[in-house]
Design a protein around this nucleic acid. Structure first.
Lengths: 232, 232
DNA sequence: ATCCTTGTTTGCGCCAGCGCAAAGACGCAG
DNA sequence: CTGCGTCTTTGCGCTGGCGCAAACAAGGAT
């Protein structure tokens, strides 16, 4: 019963379905297909034919892309209320990225036709979707600019701040990033290597800006990180 | 009179206004505001409050972004029939990029309210717009992956191929990239420096893959470039 | 407790690509 | 034709960050 509540919660707080009434939410839920994913399970693979888009009800997905040589980049982690694979609705295409659960995750999926139907029924959805995609576009553009112009330590700082904002939870020690986050993950998110991340985090730990463990980061001095990321 | 024909042509062939009838195109045109730009004139600046979106009728715009230190990246060149600054319609935001004319250019602009009105009048527009933004998102994601994982020479090759496809015209010598394109521009598009671009192009010119002059590139052997960009 | 897998740290050497500096080439204006 | 501003080339030295290798640490399974 908890799950049902979580799902309609994630609908209500989602940007895709905002401005819809409770009744309309019910219609949307009724047409969706629920799916449970345990950690490391793949929801869809880059290159698979895109049939459905998905809303995260609870848990978290990692969106990544591989190049021809198998080098990976992480585009984002998305949590409850966030949507992915909008491309499935509009285009006859393959998924451009891979979506993998990083914890116990429940998603609701709608296939092309169903989502098209819902968008026609409630035109707000397509406006909302456009807004979301615009935000994503702007975010990737910002990341692209950073990757192109900022030094690696600055990028790692910006990555930690991003993760902190999207998955941070307050603890007595500082802000804990509530995602299993290895050094390699941070590297894939920052456009560098596991070695450089490790060296950089070690330095920051000595300075008291963060505390880190195996796949765990707590930002103990966010302000220092912000200052560092903005320094000229 | 030529200009009028060009404008309705650019409407008809545009992705934003596709699937609209000729009459509907006329309505759209009537609500737009035409603007002429000479080379190097700025249509809008990154950071300006976004009031209008624009369709290029003829000519070409360069879309760029600066970081805090003034380092520039080029996101794309857009030509006739292409749209920019969709963010103006949906969001109360600043322009995230700068748009500069690189040749004699005519654009048509629609402000927030007008475009909103047109989108409600012809819902196809918002669907079309969503499709365009999805394409842009995928393109930036691809470029992000390249920047993060590919070596600089490979990226320069991919940049030339992109420019060739979007602005190439066939000549007896090869495919001429019909944009005033300095080494610095190619660097800003590839995420490298003017020196590295110059050295790389020199090498390729010796191999007979390209011919280059002052702000001019002709790709004489596209196939060699493709092969090079795909080599393991 | 002990093993084993998986993740992290750090020393070390190396090199792709950066960026200065100076010379050279282009093309427009007068 | 000449001058001048702008763009391009190339030699040279340097360094940020990569990546191997090896040791170390954490945590789960038996």
């Amino acid at each position: 019963m908890e799950k049902i509540i979580t799902i309609s919660d994630s609908l209500r707080t989602s940007d895709v379905f905002k401005r819809l009434t409770a009744d309309q939410h019910d219609v949307v839920v009724k047409h969706g297909l629920r799916k449970k994913l345990s950690p490391k399970k793949i929801l869809f693979h880059q290159g698979d034919s895109a049939q459905s888009c998905f809303l995260v009800n609870c848990g978290r997905l990692k969106l990544t892309k591989l190049n021809a040589q198998g080098r990976e980049v992480i585009f984002r982690y998305i949590g409850a209320g966030e949507m992915t694979a909008a491309v499935a609705v509009l285009k006859n295409r393959d998924y451009p990225t891979t979506a993998e659960a990083v914890e116990e995750t429940v998603v609701t999926g709608w296939d092309k036709q169903t989502m098209m139907y819902l968008m026609r029924l409630y035109p707000d959805i397509s406006i909302n979707l456009l807004g979301i995609i615009l935000d994503r576009l702007e975010d990737v553009q910002n990341r692209y600019l950073e990757l192109s112009t900022e030094r690696v330590e600055r990028r790692i700082a910006l990555t930690l701040l991003r993760l902190m904002r999207s998955a941070g939870s307050k603890t007595p020690e500082g802000i804990y990033i509530d995602i299993p986050l290895g050094r390699q993950n941070i590297a894939d998110y920052s456009g560098t290597t596991l070695y450089t991340v490790s060296r950089t985090l070690s330095t920051w730990e000595k300075k008291g800006w963060i505390k880190s463990g195996r796949e765990r980061i707590v930002v103990t001095d966010p302000h220092a990180l912000v200052t560092f990321s903005e320094a000229i």
